[in-house]
Design a protein around this nucleic acid. Structure first.
Lengths: 123, 123
DNA sequence: TGTAATCTACTACATTTATAGTAGATCATA
DNA sequence: TATGATCTACTATAAATGTAGTAGATTACA
């Protein structure tokens, strides 16, 4: 998976959000200050060349949609962070989060359940 | 915190690893194929300009060291991923990991403990 | 059916990156 | 102390990026 930059990622995010859309729809969903229509179009083209999005022609307009799912991308990003930043230790990653962000207790309870389930499953 | 690229991050990683070192030390710790000495020097300069590393002069050689800690950087990277990729839900992030990577049971047990402690602490 | 609006393709351009060479300073040692 | 090794500063350059304008095609509607 080829690397993408921040600007490119932002537009990819919009596409995940709206599932598919014309350039104008992407611009619409971008926060202010919105870049020019043509700027967005150019960035989308880059994403298309890199294989992150594709398009379909509805009548005469191009509707773009993500090819790389958010999940697949998350996996990619996380793999790097995981290995490089937490020495490949999931424990380190989680404890980092628990310490840095004060995770609400409700989430912690849920998490505990999730982990217990996983333990049971693996046994 | 200004964004850095992959190449820059790789060199920053080496500095975290060795704590501090001259350009030659960084080159040493880079995997093959090693870039040219001067390439590394240039990238370090970029990192310095962006405020990620600084240097000290020992005699006449420059010894570089990271200013941004691995932890601070991890925080930065994770914040983005967390918000953008997991909708700000820690639960989503963790369950993603548990599902995607098969986390060994020993880690899961540790994690469970960690979370239980945190729950207790918050109560 | 002509005119305004809209869309994509193509082009432009300044900036940043990645990569590395050269020159000049300095240091160690024969 | 002259010579080779090493270091930093400066310069170079191709490719990618971010940003956006223009032209030409097409469409919708007055």
């Amino acid at each position: 998976m080829e690397e993408i930059t921040k600007a490119q990622e932002e537009i990819l995010r919009v596409l995940w959000e709206i599932n598919e859309g014309a350039v104008a729809d992407v611009v619409e969903n971008l926060p202010n200050p919105k870049p020019a229509y043509t700027t967005v179009a150019t960035v989308i083209k880059v994403l298309e060349k890199k294989g992150y999005v594709a398009h379909r022609k509805y009548g005469n307009i191009y509707v773009y949609y993500p090819v790389v799912t958010k999940k697949a991308y998350a996996k990619h990003v996380m793999k790097d962070a995981y290995k490089g930043l937490f020495n490949g230790s999931f424990h380190q990653l989680v404890s980092f989060f628990v310490k840095e962000k004060s995770v609400p207790i409700s989430e912690l309870e849920e998490l505990k359940k999730l982990i217990e389930q996983e333990i049971k499953k693996q046994k």
